[in-house]
C-alpha cells in the first residue's frame, strides 16, 4: 500500500535530517585524549587540545543551548547578556517599523505610477538608479543624518523593502484588465473610489507578492544592519557571540533566524492567498 505523497515526503525529510545530524555528530565527536602534555600548557590549550575535542560543537551541544534559550528567552543581565527572545523582539520590531513605513510609501506611489503613464516615465530614472543600491550603503548616511543607530537600522529596512513593493504595485495597477476599468468608467466611479473598489482589489495578488518578496529581503538585511549598528537585535547577538567565540550560540541564532524568516514568509503567503480571486 502506498501512502500519500505528503506522508512520504515527510518521511524522506526526517530521514535526511537524521542523516545530517548523525554525520554532524560523528564529525564533531572528538578523538579521545592526546599524548601527555605539560599540565600548564594543557590548561592553556583547553579541552580541544587535551581531550581531542572538536572545536566545532556537535548537535547535542547545540540542542542543549537551544533548550537553554527556550527555557528562559527573556532574561536581561546587562548590555551584552540578553535573552534570545529579547534580541529577536528588537529585530522583529525594527523590521516591522521599517516595513510598514515602506508599505505606506510604496503602495500610494506604486498606484500613482501604475495609473499615470506620465508619472511612470518621470519617476522611472530615479527608481532605476536607487533600486540597485545595497541597502547597507545607506547606513553611514543614515547614521550621519538621523544620529540614532536604532532608527538608522529601521531606515535601512525601509529602503530595502520599498523597491519590490513599489515595482509590483505599479505593475499590478498598470495591468488591471481594461474591461474592469471600463466598467468603473461607465458607472462614473470617481478616481478615489475606483482605486479602492477596482484597482487595488484587482492588483492585490500582485501587490502582496511584492510585499512577500520585501519581507524576505528585510529579514535578510536586518541581521547585517544590526551587526553594524550593534546594541540589540539578533544580528548583534550573532556578532557578539562570535566575539565570545560561542559557536553553539552562533549556530542557535542561525537556526532561529531561519525559523522566524520562514514564519514571516508564510504569513505573507497566507495573506496573498486570502486576496487572490479565482477567475
Amino acid at each position: 500500500m502506498t501512502r500519500s505523497l505528503p506522508f512520504r515526503a515527510a518521511v524522506v525529510s526526517l530521514a535526511l535530517l537524521a542523516a545530517f545530524l548523525l554525520a554532524w555528530h560523528l564529525a564533531t565527536r572528538g578523538g579521545g585524549p592526546t599524548a601527555a602534555m605539560d599540565p600548564e600548557y594543557a590548561k592553556l590549550m583547553g579541552a580541544t587540545a587535551t581531550q581531542g575535542k572538536s572545536a566545532m560543537p556537535g548537535p547535542l551541544d547545540v540542542a542543549a543551548t537551544v533548550w537553554g534559550h527556550l527555557k528562559d528567552p527573556f532574561y536581561d543581565r546587562g548590555t551584552n547578556d540578553k535573552g534570545l527572545g529579547i534580541q529577536l523582539g528588537w529585530s522583529i520590531a525594527r523590521v516591522a517599523a521599517g516595513y510598514l513605513l515602506a508599505v505606506l510609501v510604496a503602495i500610494p506611489i506604486g498606484v500613482l505610477i501604475g495609473m499615470s503613464p506620465l508619472m511612470s516615465r518621470a519617476l522611472d530614472p530615479f527608481v532605476q538608479v536607487l533600486k540597485p543600491i545595497s541597502p547597507l550603503a545607506w547606513m553611514p548616511l543614515a547614521l550621519y543624518t538621523i544620529k540614532d543607530s536604532g532608527l538608522s537600522a529601521v531606515f535601512v529596512i525601509f529602503i530595502c523593502s520599498l523597491w519590490p513593493m513599489l515595482a509590483n504595485t505599479a505593475f499590478g495597477i498598470a495591468s488591471v484588465r481594461r474591461e474592469w476599468i471600463n466598467v468603473a468608467r461607465t458607472l462614473e466611479v470617481g478616481t478615489l473610489r475606483r482605486i479602492f473598489t477596482v484597482l487595488l482589489p484587482a492588483a492585490a495578488p500582485t501587490i502582496l507578492t511584492g510585499m512577500r518578496i520585501s519581507i524576505g529581503i528585510a529579514w535578510l538585511v536586518i541581521v547585517a544592519a544590526e551587526m553594524l549598528v550593534g546594541g540589540t537585535g539578533i544580528g548583534y547577538f550573532v556578532w557578539n557571540e562570535w566575539n565570545n567565540l560561542s559557536i553553539t550560540n552562533v549556530i542557535t541564532a542561525i537556526l532561529v533566524i531561519g525559523v522566524v524568516g520562514m514564519v514571516l514568509d508564510q504569513l505573507l503567503a497566507r495573506l496573498t492567498r486570502a486576496v487572490t480571486f479565482p477567475e
Partner: peptide, 19 residues
C-alpha cells in the same frame, strides 16, 4: 462627453469583478 450612468454597457466578456 465621456461615459455616463445614463448609458449602460453590457460587455461581450461580461466584465464582472471576480472578487
Amino acid at each position: 462627453e465621456g461615459p455616463s450612468l445614463d448609458r449602460a454597457v453590457i460587455f461581450q466578456s461580461h466584465a464582472l469583478l471576480p472578487w
